[in-house]
Amino acid sequence: MQDKRSMQKQAAVYGLLFGVIILIIGIIALYWIASTTAMPVIIASPVLLSFAIPVALAIFFTLKLRKYVGGYWSMREAASGIFIMFFAAYFVYSLGNYIYSHSVDKGITERVQQNIVKVTTDFAGKQNVPTEELDEKIDEIKASIEAGKNPTIGHVIQGIIFSIIITFIAALIFAAIFKKEPPVFAKSVSE
């Protein structure tokens, strides 16, 4: 079994790869959502791109990390390695997403939000939703968008702390699922 420091370094490397992959998928998703006219894409993309694909990648990298340490690790070893991996991925994704949306393509977030409102409005109109109800929903969506545009320092810190807690809880859950203690062999008694 590799030593603890080696496992942590490998976990960080897998986390960086995981974060870059999720960042690329996220950037592609932004353009996909910004240009779609289909309501199923608007509904399914967060589930697929924010949950299903990241969970599948997390499982893949967790199994690779367990294989790297020899196939066996305790709950504590698994939790620490997985937390390092998840935190590195979160850091790369968050930083990359921030840089991309504030430096590379400053208008992408707004285009995504506008398209979501447009597609939702078109869909609701086809479903004969009453105009008053539709206007209320649009106002709610726009208010939500405006509230997220200028977060305070307190909201940013609160978001970071919340993300670290969620990352730790996810690491504990993955560790509980993927821990694998080495087998204990019974000693044969010979006379």
Results as ranks from 00 to 15, higher is better:
67 K>Y: 05
29 A>G: 14
131 T>P: 00
138 I>D: 01
117 V>G: 02
16 L>G: 13
29 A>H: 11
118 K>Q: 12
55 V>P: 00
113 Q>S: 14
39 M>S: 02
134 L>D: 02
10 Q>C: 08
141 I>C: 12
148 G>F: 12
83 F>L: 13
47 V>T: 10
31 Y>S: 12
64 K>G: 04
90 Y>L: 14
24 I>T: 03
113 Q>P: 01
85 M>S: 14
19 G>I: 10
54 P>Y: 06
12 A>H: 05
70 G>D: 09
147 A>I: 12
40 P>R: 05
141 I>L: 15
103 S>E: 08
89 A>R: 07
150 N>T: 15
13 V>C: 01
84 I>F: 03
20 V>M: 12
115 N>I: 06
9 K>D: 05
37 T>H: 13
129 V>Y: 03
8 Q>W: 13
42 I>P: 00
130 P>Y: 06
116 I>G: 03
22 I>K: 00
148 G>R: 14
92 V>S: 10
45 S>K: 02
142 K>G: 05
14 Y>V: 04
55 V>G: 02
47 V>Y: 10
84 I>M: 07
66 R>T: 07
123 F>W: 13
105 D>K: 03
93 Y>M: 02
34 A>V: 13
41 V>L: 08
20 V>I: 15
76 R>I: 07
115 N>C: 03
44 A>D: 06
140 E>N: 10
35 S>C: 00
90 Y>C: 02
127 Q>F: 13
115 N>T: 05
84 I>A: 05
143 A>G: 00
26 G>Y: 12
8 Q>P: 00
131 T>W: 00
91 F>P: 00
36 T>S: 09
96 G>K: 05
